[in-house]
Amino acid sequence: MRIITFANHKGGVGKTTTVVNTADILSRWGKRILVVDMDPQGNSTLTLGRKDPFEHQYTIGHLLADKELSVADCAHSVNGNLDLIPSNLHAYSQLALLPPNSAKRIFGLREKLEAVRGADNGYDLVLVDCPPQIEGPLITNAVAASDVYILPVDGESLYALQGTNHLIQAIEAIREDTNSDIRLLGVLVTMYNPRTTASRLVMDAVREFFGDALFQTVIRRNTTLNKANLSQQSIFDLDPASFGCQDYQKFATEMLSRVETGQKP
């Protein structure tokens, strides 16, 4: 079981879209996938959970705050190969009730996921959707638990790299403080439009900054992806022939290759 965090300190960079669609595609390929929604906005929960985030009995807040609850207790079945640990805005208040020195603020997710590692009919991959922030118990739990992280960046924003180094340094600090082995698996450019000067400039800047860490796959801007998000569907459900679905299948293949071979950027 490999645990992959998707993180960016900015919102609107395609992080949740990437988590949801990559998880859906991998599950269709026969991989056992768990999505952990660490973002109290609950956007992954909205798409995969198929109901209001507040209607789920247990969420990530319950899992981290209650030592008696297990991953199996909190996991919502999306399909035969895909499970979801939901999230909603109550996660903030649930974690706020923990004592300041509580280990659950740092190691709660790691401990719960370690309990299912290697289990019969266990998960091949865990994909963690993080909130758009650099610090706090949610991002700390995600980093402490994960083997690798992926950084999605907005392919149309000239400010795509702004603050990125700060995020990487923050993750490195959490890694050292928690004795985690997390490392960068790669950088994914999303919402890329090769016809615009802005996208070409962003791609050049990201390639120069990250080098081999950049995934060869890019996620092109595609109206079908927007429609899928608005209708709370995966791109495969809405239009498997679309550019968006093709791009995410290529990304899923490339991501799996890096994970399985232990490729380092």
Rank of each mutant, 00 (worst) to 15 (best):
G12T: 09
V13F: 00
G14M: 11
T17D: 02
V19A: 05
V19D: 01
N21W: 04
T22C: 10
D24Y: 15
L26G: 04
S27L: 07
R28F: 09
W29F: 10
W29R: 13
G30C: 06
G30Y: 10
G30H: 06
I33E: 00
L34W: 03
V35W: 00
D39K: 02
G42Q: 03
S44F: 08
S44E: 01
L46Q: 12
L46W: 09
L46F: 08
T47H: 02
L48N: 09
G49A: 01
R50C: 05
R50Q: 14
R50Y: 13
K51N: 03
K51S: 14
K51E: 12
K51Y: 06
D52W: 01
P53A: 12
E55A: 15
H56L: 04
H56I: 06
Q57S: 12
T59Y: 02
I60T: 07
H62M: 11
L63H: 06
L64R: 13
D66K: 12
D66F: 07
K67T: 14
K67Q: 14
E68V: 11
S70C: 10
A72V: 07
A72F: 10
A75N: 08
A75H: 07
A75T: 09
S77T: 14
V78S: 10
G80F: 11
G80W: 11
L82T: 03
D83F: 13
L84A: 08
L84Y: 12
P86N: 12
P86C: 11
P86S: 13
S93W: 12
L98F: 02
L98Q: 00
L98I: 03
P100K: 14
P100I: 13
P100M: 14
N101G: 07
N101K: 15
S102D: 15
K104I: 01
F107I: 09
F107Q: 10
E111V: 10
E111I: 11
E111F: 08
E111L: 08
K112N: 02
E114P: 01
E114V: 06
A115L: 07
A115W: 03
V116S: 13
R117A: 14
G118T: 04
A119Q: 13
D120C: 06
D120I: 10
N121K: 07
N121R: 03
N121H: 03
